[in-house]
Nucleic acid binder design. Structure first.
Lengths: 344, 344
DNA sequence: CAGAGTCAATGAACCGGTTCATAAGAGACT
DNA sequence: AGTCTCTTATGAACCGGTTCATTGACTCTG
């Protein structure tokens, strides 16, 4: 509990070596499972370690080895429920491989992203998984190219030199849009996040592709971007539904924004399904258990976490792999009662 | 991008010292804002650092200093959406103070908790925030008492020597139960998590206290503990509603279990509010936007995160504070349409 | 039995900072 | 000028491991 006497109390390799009657180098070799160490000696050293309650100092190991066995994960905001799934799976894979996860939030600001990359370097972090607020940001790109450790992009795709794992948001949005068009909707409003980043950008592309295929020109007044919080979604929905010519369908394409949207509709006494069709950009308990249940796009964030961690491990191992590997997780549309044929 | 030449490329204090024409000690003093360094020299050193692109090696600093500026957070499973709020706020406070957050999941198993504590020691982590699967577990208690760094308990209260931040789950459960009793319910089923841990234990206490005050003896067949996943909640609800004499109210007291419960009710075509009253142990978009909206217990997890980080910082600073400080965040009941007078 | 070859163990040097006893230099005072 | 303070800079030692050139013991061979 006290931190003062720790320094002196702590047992070091020297102490173990003395107790076992061997050289410090031998203790180190036992610690690292070096092959050239006699069974008898190994046992003596292990007994000494157990007897003295020895514990290696990872800090000292890191310093000498030049690697820390730390992997950093920096995402916009880990307050996004479904993102926790990604982190959970990634952490499990990394821990299995002997790595520890560092966590930081970028708050979606380039300066913070750059500062974090610098902090990770100072800590001699062995690998990084991160999102970017803006893939085209010059300073961020420069910071990334100068990073001495491998960086894995999470749901970003514009930096060709880096490995990345993405979800096929384009396809998801296209499916959702075609579904609504097929139901006869022509005034489809869309809520997306920051289109400087891959997910919202590709959702928008998918939306436009589907409209174009159907020979329809979307009304630009029905597009709301930069919807990043529940409050944003609330305001955007309220404003859309107050238009003189309101949409007949609402595609809430940003992650975890459904709550804000439904809150607005409830406030305005607009019935989901009847008054307006709704499609959610990500699935959730809320989407599934709402009345009526909400049609939603779904993809496997846990698999994304596993893949991101696995690919990063390969890269950290220094395997000879080509640069800029990209893995895409498919999206699918779960059709539920919130999307109905347009009323005449 | 390549990791091979890094070792030789990296700029060290020596290089800065040579460039600036000073001793290494002086560079170190500049780095640490030591007061006894002349302005002229400081500027020369800073210019040299900028010119060479110098960056300190935190690993080396940690080794010498004996502290790592790392804080570990180990919780059962960060797949719990509302818990992300706790982590988010704690991380912000810690980062502000120059600490980096390490994250690990205990999967609610004592062996893992002990192993993690050991791993944190090896990393010379400066402080720990964690939950415990079982506060009475002997080996875990021993591991905690041997921890050389301060440990902060998250929503646990049985280890008097440690600082802790808890929510007043007892009061929340009491309010919820009294509310249901006041509506005439006598057969109230309760779903709780692991009662070896503080939250579920105190919710159960609150429930019993409220029953006892009302002079009612709860039917033990209506209590389901160890409900830890959505699937558990589904099965428990289904089984309860299949009883010959089913409950008239359901108190889903575990965190984030509401989805499983509602799914079961839907499958069985039991209407929330009419067929059965429901109270949720934690609030969520789902509870708020369900039809009917679900009465729920609410508390400020963000504040818990802030307080946990702040108290841990004080402790790490080595302030002279009494041991085992406890901070409790209040809970309140948000009454919505899912809890109605019992039908005759 | 000498010499070559194998295999294990040794311990000094190293990783990259910080610390602190010591020295050097600048003023102040006698 | 000499002595005493006070301030500031110096650099060797240290933190706790790992590495590797070297040594020593032992086996094998001709």
């Amino acid at each position: 509990m006290l931190s003062q006497p720790r320094r002196s109390q702590t047992v070091k390799v020297r102490d173990v070596a003395r107790e076992a009657g061997v050289a410090v180098g031998t203790v180190s070799r036992v610690l690292n499972d070096h092959p050239t160490v006699a069974r008898e000696l190994r046992e003596r050293v292990e007994r000494a370690m157990a007897h003295l309650g020895y514990e290696v100092d990872v800090t000292a190991q890191s310093m000498r080895a030049g690697r820390s066995r730390l992997v950093a994960c920096a995402i916009r905001d880990f307050d996004i429920p479904r993102f926790a799934l990604f982190i959970k799976e990634a952490e499990a894979v990394l821990r299995e491989a002997g790595y520890t996860l560092l966590l930081a939030s970028t708050t979606n600001r380039p300066e913070v992203e750059i500062a974090l990359l610098r902090a990770f370097r100072r800590r001699r972090v062995d690998g990084v998984m991160m999102t970017l607020s803006d893939e085209e940001h010059r300073d961020v790109r420069e910071a990334l190219s100068e990073a001495p450790m491998p960086v894995m992009l999470i749901d970003r795709d514009r930096i060709e030199a880096l490995d990345r794992v993405t979800a096929d948001h384009r396809q998801g949005a296209r499916l959702a849009t075609s579904h609504l068009l097929g139901l006869g909707h022509r005034r489809i409003a869309m809520l997306v996040g920051d289109i400087k980043a891959f997910p919202s950008r590709s959702r928008l592309e998918g939306f436009r592709a589907a409209c174009s295929t159907a020979g329809i020109t979307p009304d630009p007044r029905l597009l709301r971007d930069n919807v990043l919080s529940s409050e944003d979604a609330y305001r955007a929905t309220a404003s859309l539904m107050s238009l003189a010519n309101p949409p007949t369908a609402l595609f809430v394409a940003a992650m975890d924004m459904l709550g804000g949207c439904l809150r607005a509709l409830r406030t305005m006494s607009i019935a989901v399904g009847d008054g307006i069709s709704v499609v959610a950009g990500s699935d959730s308990d809320l989407a599934e258990l709402h009345t009526p249940p909400i049609t939603a796009i779904e993809w496997d964030l846990a698999a994304m976490g596993r893949h991101a961690a696995t690919m990063l491990l390969e890269r950290m191992r220094g395997d000879e792999i080509e640069c800029g590997r990209a893995l895409t997780v498919p999206t699918e549309l779960i059709i539920r009662g919130s999307s109905r044929p347009v009323a005449n």
